[in-house]
């Protein structure tokens, strides 16, 4: 099934149900664990506690302690153990309580998981999913509020997914678990409780990794975003429409491999683009999109690419400063108007 076919289903198929992102992720894991005995989940508090954010609710009861494994607080160790288990023929899902803690394990993710297929001349392969909440939550300060999208998307050998809706979260997580390569799956804590009416109940339904989704069509300006920022971009598009600007909103969904074609196709139509992300500006996803537009769509651009990003600071704790540090709808609207030369 292609992405476009699914869009048709979204309009017509009554089998789509409404679930929170949390429930959709849980269902995705449960379905894949039922389908494939080699799939198992490990991480801190995933089993008896049912997940620090309750994403793995009920999985221990359903699959038992062999396949839902509580780890000690030892990210470097259990990430490496997961890589070894993948080399040994299993398909681990390694949950980081948050991706902030994956920095303890980043050597295993990049040097061991991502590079070994290449270093082995194609012999090894590492079918593993590293998943967990990424980016800022709310008022948790600098060490717990960081977006790792560009960190991992930088590295060949990895796939990096960051979904927005519940339906995408489920279908892409299932795709990630089935994928023979290491996949970094970036969720968002603030989205866990948000419900979407786009969740397929078909156990065989997966989405292709590497395909963006045009969530709103428009002719005047392209907005690209992923994860929670898709919601902000859609809000901004509503506001822009009130001012007569029709924004096209692209949900990137996968950051590596990035669906450059869909972005170019949009820019050919709109001639203007704003990239939105919650992480830092320097060498971010937006920087990459700006460079790609220079390389592939320069002749179609009527304005310089603009980036709306998080502020270039460690995340502050104070409510007002945190608000200032994160991209808001106002700043997206402002940037979109700027590339349209409207004030």
């Amino acid at each position: 099934m292609t992405t476009n076919q699914r869009e048709d289903i979204l309009m017509t198929d009554s089998s789509l149900i409404t679930l929170s992102v949390r429930e959709a992720l849980r269902d995705g894991m449960a379905e894949e664990m039922t389908r494939d005995e080699t799939v198992f989940l490990m991480g801190e508090e995933v089993a008896e506690y049912n997940g620090a954010y309750k994403v793995s609710q009920g999985l221990l009861d359903q699959f038992g302690s062999k396949r839902v494994v509580d780890t000690p607080i030892t990210e470097h160790g259990f990430a490496g153990l997961g890589v070894g288990a993948a080399f040994g023929g299993l398909r681990p899902i390694v949950e980081f309580m948050t991706f902030n803690f994956s920095m303890q394990a980043i050597d295993q993710i990049i040097n061991s998981a991502a590079k070994t297929l290449y270093m082995s001349g194609g012999q090894m392969g590492c079918p593993i999913v590293f998943r967990g909440p990424n980016g800022a939550a709310s008022r948790v300060g600098a060490q717990h509020s960081q977006c790792y999208a560009s960190w991992y998307a930088h590295c060949p050998g990895l796939k990096v997914i960051s979904p927005y809706s519940a339906g995408d979260a489920k279908a892409l997580l299932k795709a990630a678990i089935r994928d023979p390569n290491p996949v970094v799956f970036l969720e968002n804590e603030l989205l866990y409780g948000r419900s979407f009416d786009d969740v397929s109940q078909d156990q065989d339904y997966v989405l292709p990794i590497g395909k963006a989704l045009v969530r709103r069509e428009g002719k005047d300006v392209t907005l690209t975003a992923f994860s929670i920022m898709v919601g902000k971009a859609l809000e901004a598009a509503d506001r822009l429409a009130e001012e007569g600007i029709e924004a096209e909103v692209i949900d990137l969904r996968t950051l590596r491999p990035l669906d450059v074609d869909t972005i170019i196709e949009s820019v050919v139509k709109t001639n203007r683009i704003v990239s939105i992300e919650e992480s830092w500006p320097f060498a971010g996803i937006g920087s990459e999109i700006a460079a790609l537009m220079m390389e592939h769509a320069f002749d179609y651009l009527d304005a310089p690419v603009l980036r709306v990003t998080g502020a270039d600071v460690p995340m502050p704790y104070a409510a007002n400063l945190e608000h200032l540090a994160l991209p808001q709808v106002d700043s997206i609207v402002e940037a979109a108007k700027a590339v349209c030369y409207r004030t």
């Binding site: 470097h76 160790g77 259990f78 990430a79 490496g80 153990l81 997961g82 890589v83 070894g84 288990a85 993948a86 080399f87 040994g88 023929g89 299993l90 681990p92 050597d107 295993q108 040097n111 061991s112 070994t116 270093m119 082995s120 090894m124």
Partner: peptide
């Protein structure tokens, strides 16, 4: 199973092979 260039990184990986 390698052949690993990062000192010590092979130890959790080997532990994972044992897990498997």
């Amino acid at each position: 199973f390698g052949g690993h260039g990062i000192v010590g990184a092979q130890v959790p990986i080997g532990t994972g092979l044992a897990f498997a």
